[in-house]
Amino acid sequence: MTGRIFSIEEFATFDGPGIRMTVFFKGCPLRCSWCHNPESQQMGVEYVRSPNGCLGCGRCLQAAKTAEDGTKHLTAASVEACPRFLVRRCGEDYSTDALCDRILANASILTSTGGGVTFSGGEPLLQAAFLFSCLEVLRGRVHTAIQTCGYADAETFAGVLERCDYVLYDLKLMSPDQHREFCHADNAKILQNYRTLAASGKPFVTRVPLIPGVTDTVENLTAMAAFVREQGVDYVELLPYNRMAGSKYAGLLRPFAPGFDENRPVELHTGIFEKYGIRAKKM
């Protein structure tokens, strides 16, 4: 079995306990307007250019292709064309064994720090069968976590809870309309799976991206605090929007149109959570 991965990070410091490797799965069911990993969204292989050290010579663009919808994309030829090797292929197919071997090579260090591996994305549950096969190989050998937006069938979600050790669960917008507007999907499954998670006894952490004027509103956070509290949760992590988020879009030749004012400072509103007896930590 193979899965499509767009990046493997060896020293992830914000993806769960201890030092972690984070494996980024390609493909996501959501299209959050603030997404800082735009190369994670599509299942197909893409080519992305790192801005660091770019000479601006334009050779990668000469090798780009134009899709039917008129959008431009870098290509394998762009990788060859870049004199500084800054264009890379995004999306590699790994077999279960190849990926697990890569993780297990670091297992003793990960374990010694109370860490492990985190499967993130994209959305790892979009490649559930592959994810499950990896989790089964790794079971008992290294601590496993998934970072998920929660958008999955109940059955799939139950399956991952059976197989992983820890969950990092994102909650973004409580209003279904707003969720559809900014994330391009309904949030009913997300809220339902969250209830399942909270009832399961599986260790997890709730993470809330604070997007200025979108998710950081009093209305949204009050509804969220009430919902979270209802599930018996007393701790959330707040991830303030980072203005660097848009930086990767240029590398994919895509415009970044987040649909909100990036320069507006994020409202932390930890008080709202506290009112519900929830400790909120800014990450």
Binding site: T13, F14, S112
Partner: peptide
């Protein structure tokens, strides 16, 4: 070299410390 954003909170700091300790312990 570690990007300075890793140090943005105490959790990141602790993990850098763990990485250094891992190198020494190895």
């Amino acid at each position: 070299e570690i990007h300075d954003t890793v140090f943005r909170n105490d959790e990141g700091e602790r993990k850098v410390a763990q990485l250094i300790k891992a190198y020494i312990d190895l």
